[in-house]
């Protein structure tokens, strides 16, 4: 499980991110395999979210952010000139820290929002897609009676699962998750974790989390970041039982962070 892997879905090559004078991510090189869950862990401010957000060019929106190096998606650099970030982002979906459904839309419209961008499908097609996506995030049974009520009436955990449904409705290949459970209660967290496990059959998942138990539970590979650098990356079991680097061990055993 290293850079040598040929079937890597995503490969970061000497990635650097600056925010103004702040060098947030330093010379990061790593690869994520297809149909696997990669967890990124580390203390707050270590650059883990910044790395994640560079995988679908979210930094384009941030004034003053500069990204150097390359991010290869199926071997093609998404930062190359000809790459259209809008098209690319349909292949790389993202779920955010706080649930962010569109408050002016119904549950149904939220799920279908991204899909609609590429033209209106037939009504029956869209209905089927909404059901399928809500089924997959196990929200269907809870909301099938009220698909057309405002999405803000759902609880926080339901909203986050709705956001995941909205992401997979676009049929991406990769799903980036930025601490998706940090705003959720334990039961909702469990549901989302189960969902991640199911989703990896079809998608490549990269998840940032500050919760080490969560990383241990859901991921196949774990990467530990500290002060903007990738300290160690490897099989999750190995990282949590027998890490190679002192810093990793200190963090995992709770000596700092």
């Amino acid at each position: 499980m290293s850079e040598a892997t040929t079937d890597a879905k995503i490969r970061l090559d000497r990635l650097n991110v600056h925010f103004g004078a702040n060098h947030a991510v330093k010379e990061v090189t790593m690869a994520m395999a297809s149909n696997s869950v990669t967890a990124i862990i580390g203390p707050s401010g270590c650059g883990k979210s910044t790395v994640l957000r560079s995988i679908n060019r979210m930094h384009d929106l941030t004034p003053g952010a500069r990204v150097n190096g390359s991010v290869l998606l199926d071997g093609e650099d998404i930062y190359r000139k000809e790459c259209d970030p809008v098209t690319m982002r349909r292949r790389v979906g993202m779920v955010f820290q706080k649930p962010n459904p569109f408050p002016a839309m119904s549950i149904y419209d939220n799920v279908i929002a991204g899909y609609r961008l590429n033209g209106r499908g037939r009504r029956s097609e869209m209905d089927a897609l909404v059901e399928q996506c809500l089924q997959r995030v196990s929200l269907w049974d809870e909301v099938k009676e009220r698909l057309h009520v405002n999405a803000m009436q759902l609880s926080g955990g339901q909203q986050q699962r709705l956001c995941i449904a909205r992401t997979i409705a676009v049929m991406p290949e990769v799903i980036l998750m930025d601490e998706p459970c940090s705003a959720l209660d334990p039961i909702s967290t469990l549901k989302v974790e189960e969902l991640i496990d199911e989703l990896k059959e079809k998608y490549t998942i990269v998840i940032v989390t500050h919760n080490m138990q969560q990383a241990a539970r859901v991921s196949d590979t774990t990467a530990f970041f500290y002060l903007g650098e990738l300290i160690e990356m490897g099989d999750t079991k190995k990282i949590f039982t027998n890490p190679e680097k002192r810093q990793t061990e200190d963090y995992i055993t709770g000596r700092f962070g």
Binding site: L61, G93, M94, F96, N100, P101, G114
Partner: peptide, 17 residues
């Protein structure tokens, strides 16, 4: 909130969308 804009952009929306 920027999270609203990010949600749309992450779905592959252009600026106008």
């Amino acid at each position: 909130p920027d999270s609203q804009r990010e949600a749309a952009v992450a779905l592959g929306a252009t600026r106008w969308e």
